[in-house]
Simulated scan of single mutants.
Amino acid sequence: MFNRIKVSHFILLLIIIGAFIWSSIKTTDYFTWVLEVSPVTIGLLILIFTYKRFRFTTLSYIIITVLSIFVFIGGHYIYERVPLFNWIKDVFHSHRNNYDRFGHFAKGFFAIIIREILIRTSCLQPSKWLIFITLSIVLAISSLYEILEWLASKIFGKSTKDFLGTQGDIWDSQWDMSLSLLGGILCLLILSKLHNKYLKKPL
């Protein structure tokens, strides 16, 4: 049982490494790529080095893998130029490429990882308070990311235009935070019961 779990985690790690390598090859802009993938890369390294001390459930690692791939794709093409969403933009006659909006919504699913940390390291158990605190942290992380984008623009100037990816929308930050919160709400509604089952299994 334990070996099967470790093997599945190792396979997920290999998928992430493969996606990272692909993302780094012939990127649209290497400076923007570094800005986009650095936070995820640092987070993944922390997870690897703390794996023996704090091993997440397989469900959490699946979510981390999917979210990492989304970021690597956005970093490779630059969010506003992801081909699939350019096609969607043309088909629906939209004024912008919405991959960044989709990405922020997907990041709301990080709520499961936050939920797991809270359940396993605090006195909180499944309850309304757990939902409230989890969503508050999701929103706080999203807000922190917007602040980091703002700081990057102040430090590096116009070279961070692609990193900011506002596409001319003055309410872009508010959209991003709102979509992350919405993603977190849907994540908890859809996956909380499944997550509880994973938490009962041996880690």
Rank of each mutant, 00 (worst) to 15 (best):
K158L: 02
E80V: 02
Y61W: 14
I5S: 13
Y99W: 06
Q174L: 08
D100C: 02
Y79A: 04
T160C: 00
G168S: 02
K200F: 04
L191C: 11
F102M: 08
W33S: 00
T58V: 12
P83K: 11
G18W: 07
L59E: 08
L194F: 11
S8R: 14
P83Y: 07
N97L: 07
L47A: 06
H95Q: 12
V91P: 02
V138F: 11
T57Y: 07
F20I: 05
W22H: 11
W87T: 14
L139K: 10
E146I: 01
G165P: 06
S24T: 13
R101Y: 03
I73R: 05
A106L: 15
W171C: 00
I114R: 12
L182T: 05
K161G: 00
I190A: 10
L14C: 15
F102A: 10
L191Y: 08
I25N: 04
R53I: 01
Y30W: 11
L118M: 06
I48Y: 14
L186C: 12
G75E: 06
S143I: 09
L151G: 00
V138P: 12
T134F: 12
P39W: 04
I88R: 07
S8V: 10
D29S: 05
V7T: 14
R96W: 00
F2G: 15
S8D: 12
Y198E: 15
I42N: 01
L186S: 06
T41R: 02
T41H: 01
I137L: 15
Y30A: 07
W171R: 03
I114C: 08
Q174C: 04
L186R: 02
S180H: 03
F20Y: 15
K26D: 15
R55K: 14
T65F: 07
Y61L: 10
W22L: 14
L14F: 14
P126C: 05
L148D: 03
I131E: 04
Y51D: 10
D172C: 01
S122T: 15
H9N: 15
K197V: 09
W175C: 01
L194S: 08
I62T: 10
H95G: 12
L189P: 01
A152K: 01
K200S: 13
S153F: 00
Q125H: 14
I131M: 12
K200E: 12
S38F: 09
Y145M: 10
I17C: 10
I147C: 05
T28K: 12
I17K: 10
E116S: 08
W171N: 09
D172G: 01
K128L: 12
G103Q: 11
A140N: 02
I88K: 07
D162G: 08
N86A: 05
I16V: 15
F70D: 10
I131F: 14
G157L: 00
P126Q: 01
